Simulated scan of single mutants.
Amino acid sequence: MFFQYPLLIIAAISLTACSSPLPTTELPPARYIQTAPEFPGFHDYRGIVDLPIKASGMDQSGIADLAKTSQIDFIFLADRVEPGDTDFGIAGFTSDILFIAGGAFEVGSSQIIGVNLHEPIKPNLTPNDLISAIHDQGGLAIAADPAKFASSEDYALADAMEVYNARSAWLAQSPTTLYFRAIFFGTDHFLAGLDLRPDANLAIYDRLTTGARVSMLAGAGAPDNMNVLGTKVGTLPQLFLFCTTHLIARERNTAPLLEALRLGHSYTSFDYLGYVGAFAFLARAGDTVAMMGDEIHLAPGLTLKTVLPAQADRIAMYQNGAEVTSADNATTLEFAPKSPGAYRIEAYRSNKLWILSNPIYVR
């Protein structure tokens, strides 16, 4: 039986499997911010959303150093907010990383994340009043894990929806499974177990976007730092190279990035499957071009097109949650829509989600 094996053998296997604790994300030699394809003046900024740092034991400067090594451009802070809290993190640049202050508010079994907060918010507010209080400060509200809310009314006024969260993907699995997977598999394979398509959240999101424009993104959550025979698993350096949210904005500053988030000029990439420096999903009708998050009118000649930075095993396009076209072993996909709807892209490698776009809304 396995449990009769000497601990020395297990340790040797662990050493082999975990000798490379970081995922094999192939970053460029130095951070190069790419221009958004087809949209002059816009750039593709990669960052981390929903990051609580207090539980990490690190200060903001230490987090910035890790982010710089991982070629991250921005971080949206999201420590849990207690009644009367005024500490939402230090907004602005720290070691060349742009931090956007914010916090997470418990709403039943899930959270509303307030972005760009400056003032305390009264406790015990209803979800709608909480979102209104965030908006009153010029902030944005993100509904995390929508499937965990008691009612859709609790997030109906949110600006964005966090359909994937690495921490939630971790907690959805048993500690024993995670532990033994960390022992017997390398980092990439271990992280692949967290790269689960968020079916329930995507179904909620697709229903919502049939009548509203709501941004979609991915969140990090707190690091786990599981100790596996002396090797840490689920660390911030790993998470920073695992999954990133991209914002398409004119410059790397708070106002343009918040505007990009609000408009849905955004997509998610699981970079352990291949570094994504730029990705395009656009609509074109004559001289009119729209990017992710934008609306465009249904008209003769309208074409939706996506361009990936490298080949995917599979690209699929969805209309209101239903697949309408796909391509295998491809870098591009085009489609001429015949009816209105919210159209978005999913790209896969090794049967795992690699790129997830925000929709283009054909009206």
Rank of each mutant, 00 (worst) to 15 (best):
Y5M: 13
A12P: 11
T16Y: 15
C18E: 12
S19E: 11
S19V: 12
S20E: 10
T25S: 00
L27W: 00
L27A: 03
R31W: 02
I33R: 12
P37N: 02
P37E: 00
F42K: 11
D44L: 02
I48V: 08
D50A: 11
I53M: 11
D59W: 12
D59F: 12
Q60N: 10
A64F: 02
A64V: 04
K68A: 06
I72A: 05
D73W: 07
D73Y: 03
D79V: 03
E82P: 13
F93T: 10
S95H: 15
D96G: 12
S109L: 13
S109A: 13
S110D: 02
I113E: 06
L130I: 04
I134E: 04
I134Y: 11
G138C: 01
L140N: 08
D145C: 14
K148S: 13
K148A: 12
K148C: 08
K148Q: 11
K148W: 09
F149D: 03
A150N: 13
A160H: 07
M161W: 02
E162I: 07
V163I: 13
N165W: 09
A166H: 11
S168G: 11
S168F: 07
L171N: 14
A172Y: 03
Q173E: 06
T177W: 14
F180Q: 05
F185D: 09
R197Y: 13
P198K: 04
I204W: 11
L208K: 09
L208T: 14
A212Q: 15
V214Y: 03
A218V: 04
A220S: 11
A220Q: 14
N225W: 08
M226E: 14
T231P: 05
G234R: 05
T244Y: 02
T245K: 09
L247E: 01
A249L: 07
R250K: 13
A255R: 09
A260H: 05
H265A: 08
D271W: 00
L273I: 01
Y275D: 09
Y275W: 15
G277V: 01
F279Q: 01
A280T: 06
L282A: 13
A283Y: 06
G286T: 07
G286N: 09
G293F: 04
L298Y: 02
P300Y: 01
P300K: 04
L302M: 08
T303G: 04
T306L: 13
L308H: 05
L308G: 07
A310W: 10
A312T: 04
M317T: 05
Q319A: 09
G321V: 00
T325C: 15
N329S: 12
A330K: 12
L333T: 06
L333D: 02
L333K: 06
G341L: 00
A342S: 10
R344G: 01
W354N: 08
N358V: 01
V362A: 01
